[in-house]
């Protein structure tokens, strides 16, 4: 049974069919082509598939695709302003926080959501915002540096 849903992703309206058991991450990647949403743990533990759904960061691997009907989603593809990178994206490049880069989209989405909430996040805010994002390459030091740099540039 195919289910037709309508949703907004990065300001673009999509209408598409999906199988009702489909996870949102698979729908976004395989049906709508948002490959920046990274598939990894399938259990809501690593944060690679983080998107912003109606203003809140969520793990799209544990969200039912059907729940996105009528929702407003932001993926990593929707964060830059044209060719102008978001300060978090630029800071990830400038601080060496991108090694293999596979976790990067999830971190950037989580951090964009954080910086949308507050322009001057505390250490606790940062920790809360990205404890659900695993990076296996950097040991996190460069990611802390990137957050500091982005927050500084935005303030």
């Amino acid at each position: 049974m195919g289910l037709e849903i309508k949703l907004t992703v990065n300001g673009n309206t999509h209408t598409a069919e999906l199988e009702p058991s489909t996870a949102l991450v698979d729908f976004l990647r395989d049906t709508l082509g948002y490959k920046g949403v990274k598939l990894c743990c399938n259990t809501g533990e690593c944060g690679a598939c983080t998107i912003i759904m109606d203003g809140k960061p969520v793990n799209s691997c544990v969200v039912l695709g059907a729940d996105a009907a009528g929702a407003d989603l932001v993926t990593v593809e929707g964060i830059a302003d044209g060719d102008e990178l978001h300060p978090v994206q630029q800071a990830f490049i400038d601080t060496g926080a991108v090694q293999c880069g596979y976790c990067t989209p999830g971190f950037i989405v989580s951090l964009k959501a954080l910086l949308d909430r507050t322009k001057s996040p505390t250490a606790e805010d940062v920790e809360e915002a990205i404890s659900g994002n695993i990076c296996r390459c950097t040991g996190y030091t460069k990611i802390f540096d990137a957050v500091d740099l982005a927050a500084k540039r935005m303030s």
């Binding site: 399938n42 259990t43 544990v62 969200v63 039912l64």
Partner: peptide
């Protein structure tokens, strides 16, 4: 029954799909 889905989605992935899903969201 599925609400938020954070447990049920994992079940769907790693166990057999239920015969029917009632989304109360």
């Amino acid at each position: 029954v599925i609400a938020g889905g954070t447990d049920v989605m994992v079940d769907i992935k790693y166990s057999d799909e239920p015969g029917c899903l009632v989304n109360i969201k």
